[in-house]
Simulated assay, not measured.
Amino acid sequence: MDSALTTVGLPIALAIIMFGLGLGLTVGDFRRVAQHPKAAVVALACQLLLLPLACFGLVVLFDLPPLLGIGMMLLAASPGGTTANLFSHLFRGDVALNISLTAVNTILAIGTLPLITNAAIRYFDQADTVSMPLSEVVKVFVLILVPVGIGMLVRARNAEFAGRMDKPVRIGSAVILAILVLGILLDQRENVGDYFADVGLVAALFCAISLVTGYLIPKLAGVIESQAIASSMEIGVHNGTLAIFVAVEVLDSTEISVPAAVYSLLMFPMAALWGAFVSRRVAAREPAPAA
């Protein structure tokens, strides 16, 4: 991609998105997880343990090229995106749980994202060509935590303003992600067909596994329906912008960012279809109102 887009535009884009996430967070969101931990613990276990294992299984099964395999694992390690809250709201999920999960998962990703990504780099024997230095990791998460903190502070000082900004920031985040995806695909236009052939099916399967796992495992654990839907959206709608940023700025590889770009194209229609299916089933099970 063009250097101005990566060195200036991409950090600004990530900062805007993380600021928007902070506008929807309060200290109470973290407290809520501690007070009602079951749904959050089950969802986080799916996100941090089951999904990386499932993704690794797909990478090995489909024998992905090393850089695309690393990109898939980076995506699996990325926390939920801000759009998960919108999907949860649309399809009768517990939005408060989404917000809490996003907050906690973003903090946990400081450790889990480099751990999982570095494990993938070692597995594919790419340590000589791709690296994730500690100094760069620190920069990435300063870029995440500072805007989130500022957003939370703005909300604490002026909740009305934060509420007004919620919709514009969400729309802006979606537009920013679309521009990033387009930029990656244009930069890699000579290889786009091969990349979709290599990683398109894997990304679609991983998205389906993420959405279904995020719903079924909590349901099996006895979590209520609205929380299972929230978990499904949180786990299925990954923070593609963060994965793209780490791939391009930290790992210095546009090719590693391709799986996140492809996944981002697929996850919105897949999450919408899945949400419509699940919410329709919920509506069908609810008793009709009395005449």
Rank of each mutant, 00 (worst) to 15 (best):
S3N: 12
A4L: 15
T6S: 14
T7Y: 06
V8F: 15
V8I: 15
I12M: 04
A15T: 09
A15S: 12
I16H: 00
M18R: 09
F19C: 03
G22M: 05
V27Y: 10
R31P: 00
Q35W: 10
Q35A: 14
K38P: 02
K38H: 13
K38L: 08
A39C: 14
A40M: 05
V41W: 12
A43H: 10
C46P: 07
Q47S: 07
Q47W: 02
L50G: 00
L51Y: 07
P52L: 03
P52K: 06
L53V: 12
L53M: 10
G57I: 04
L58M: 05
D63R: 15
D63W: 11
D63M: 10
L64V: 11
G71V: 06
M73H: 02
L75E: 05
A77V: 05
A77E: 05
S78Y: 04
G80R: 01
T82W: 01
T82N: 09
F87P: 03
F91W: 09
F91A: 03
N98W: 10
T106K: 10
I107R: 00
I107K: 05
I107M: 04
L108M: 12
A109Y: 05
A109H: 06
I110P: 05
G111T: 07
T112L: 03
I116A: 01
I116M: 04
A119P: 02
R122L: 07
F124W: 14
D125V: 13
A127G: 09
A127W: 08
A127F: 10
D128T: 15
T129M: 07
M132W: 11
S135N: 14
S135E: 13
V138N: 00
V140M: 12
V142M: 12
V142R: 09
L143C: 09
L145S: 02
L145Y: 02
L145T: 03
G149F: 11
G151V: 06
G151P: 08
G151S: 05
N158S: 12
A162L: 08
D166Q: 14
D166V: 08
K167W: 05
P168T: 07
P168Q: 10
P168Y: 08
G172F: 06
G172V: 12
S173K: 05
A174I: 14
V175H: 08
A178D: 02
I184Y: 02
L186W: 10
D187T: 13
Q188P: 04
N191K: 15
V192I: 11
V192L: 12
G193A: 15
G193I: 11
G193K: 12
D194T: 15
F196D: 00
G200T: 05
V202S: 04
V202T: 13
I209G: 04
S210C: 08
V212P: 03
V212E: 00
G214R: 10
G214L: 06
Y215S: 00
L220F: 15
A221K: 09
G222F: 10
G222W: 11
V223F: 03
I224G: 08
Q227G: 03
A228C: 15
I229V: 15
S231G: 09
M233L: 13
N239Y: 04
G240Y: 02
I244H: 04
V246Q: 01
V246Y: 00
E255I: 15
I256C: 04
V258I: 14
P259D: 01
P269L: 06
A272D: 02
W274I: 06
G275D: 07
F277P: 02
S279N: 13
R280V: 01
V282Q: 08
V282Y: 06
A288Q: 14
A288L: 13
A288H: 09
A290K: 14
